[in-house]
Every structure is written in C-alpha cells, then in structure tokens.
C-alpha cells in the first residue's frame, strides 16, 4: 500500500464532489453553516497558512539568540510575540536539532501537526507508511526522503498523542553567514521543520 489519496480515480472523485456538495447544501439549508465562511476557510489554507510562517520563525531563531531561547522555552508565546499570526494557539513546542541529536515529529494515531506554523500536513505525513515506521525505524524513513544522518547521530521521535504540537528547529547550515532573516528563511524547508529533511544548502539558493 502506498499513497492513499484517490485523485487518480476519476469516478470516485466525481462521486465525492457530488456527495460533498449534497452535504454542504443540506447543512446550509438547515442553517448550520454559512457558505461564505467555507470559502474563507479554503482561501486561508490555500493562500495564507503555510510553512512560510514556520520558516520565518526558524530564520529568526537562527539570527537572534534571545528569540531562539524564548522559542525553546515557550514556542506559542515566542511565535505570538513575533507578530506573524494574529493569534497563536497554545501548546506549541519547538525542539532543537544539534550535531548530536536529530528530532522527528509524527502522529501515529491520527494526523496531529502544527497547522498554524506549517499549514496543512502533506499526504505522506498522514499515511500509514509514515505513521507506522516513524516510531520504530526512523532512519529507514529518512532514507525514503533521501536523508542520511552522520553515523552516531541520536534520533528522538516525538509522537503527538495529545494537544501539544511540535516544530523542529533545524541546525543553521554553514555558508549563510551574514544573511538576512528573509534570505535565511528561503533555506528552511517544510520537511526540515518536521524532521524528515534538512535545510537547503546555501549554495542552492544563493
């Protein structure tokens, strides 16, 4: 079993389109929902909420030692003080990669993910292969992403089994000395903040 999304199957897709339309119509006619609110939610996730926010947070932590400390002490508070979001939910926790330790985030039970700073989770994050293996064999999961850590690197996997949410603070790559926060943010990939990737090499984006 690999990907579990069904966009290849045209018949199921059109069936789903009809089913969701029927559901939406009934709930609107019942007076439970306002369809303009649905439009606004979809638009927000398609255009506003995403990993660019997390990337700015990481870039600031790389540039500003006081912010890094505040982020590691209380990520909800630190991100709120940054002013990128009009509100930040509670229970956000930043975990820091070091030369000795690599962190990886998973939700084995469902799909818990730090939406506010990373947007909606990718399909693979919610898939059975990732959820089953991340806790037992994370090095082989990293291999699926083409990532090989230096020998002797400890791995810590955080299973998001409650309402706490985790974001990885990756290590700042060498070769970006003197870069602005904006430029540093361009090195920070979504996967590097989940722990299934590493930041880009500055030479790739220079």
């Amino acid at each position: 079993m690999t990907h579990d999304h069904d966009h290849e199957h045209g018949s199921e897709l059109s069936e789903m389109q009809l089913r969701v339309r029927a559901l939406e119509t009934v709930l609107a006619e019942k007076g439970y929902i306002d369809q303009a609110a649905l439009d606004a939610i979809v638009e927000a996730y398609e255009t506003k909420v995403g990993p660019h926010t997390g990337a700015r947070v990481v870039a600031k932590a790389w540039s500003d030692p006081a912010f890094r400390q505040a982020l590691l002490a209380d990520a909800s508070k630190a991100v709120a003080s940054f002013g990128l979001l009009n509100r930040v939910g509670d229970h956000l926790i930043a975990v820091e990669n070091t030369p000795k330790r690599h962190n990886m985030i998973v939700c084995t039970l469902c799909s818990c993910y730090p939406w506010e700073v990373l947007g909606l989770p990718p399909v693979w994050y919610k898939s059975a292969p990732y959820r089953s293996r991340a806790v037992s064999d994370p090095r082989s999961v990293l291999a699926d992403f083409g990532v090989k850590l230096p020998a002797g690197t400890d791995i810590r996997v955080w299973d998001s089994t409650a309402e706490t949410r985790f974001i990885v603070l990756p290590m700042r790559p060498a070769g970006a000395e003197g870069w602005s926060e904006e430029r540093l943010a361009s090195l920070v990939t979504r996967d590097s903040m989940i722990g299934t990737g590493l930041p880009k090499n500055p030479k790739e984006v220079a």
Binding site: M1, E24, Y45, L120, V123
Partner: peptide, 23 residues
C-alpha cells in the same frame, strides 16, 4: 505499509471537495 512516498510540489488540496470537506 511500504515506503513513504513524498509528492513533489504537493497542492494544498488535491480536489475542490477536499477543501470543502475541511471547511
């Protein structure tokens, strides 16, 4: 369950009904 298969340039939603369902 096999390999993890990341999708390059994955869209936020793979079909409009997915966004409506979330909303």
């Amino acid at each position: 369950f096999g390999r993890v298969e990341p999708e390059q340039d994955e869209p936020v939603f793979h079909a409009p009904w997915e966004g409506r369902t979330l909303a």
